[in-house]
Amino acid sequence: MSIVGEALRQLRRKPCTVRYPAEKAPVPPRFRGMPAWDMSKCILCVLCQNACPPGAIRLIGKGPEAEIEYLMDRCIFCEECAEVCPKRAIVMSDRFELAGFDRSKMVFRFRKEKEKQPEPPKHSAPTANG
């Protein structure tokens, strides 16, 4: 019975549950969400590939035509890549709703192109290459 006071108080208070899909808890700054590449800054130095503990980042191809392949399904969101990047081309975004049913949609390729460079998270083009 020692909880009765708090139980009565709780009845008058708003529940602490967040009605998740409708409302979302705020994401604090410097949250480690899905990393995003700014390919205009990237110099293809492969430091991120070496720093990545689970091997979620790979450099495919050679020279300026090379692509960075990012395997989101392997990523552990540790921020090592962002930390090691000499040009600060990788930032940890606040995206955290990354679950899905199709692992082939979790592979992103970033290519260094001079012409059109949309927002960093947007130019993640899904490829069928799993």
């Binding site: 139980a7 709780q10 009845l11 208070r13 529940p15 602490c16 549950t17 009605r19």
Partner: peptide
Amino acid sequence: FARVQGRYGPL
């Protein structure tokens, strides 16, 4: 029961 526990219950 849910409100006592600080939850919404069926919604």
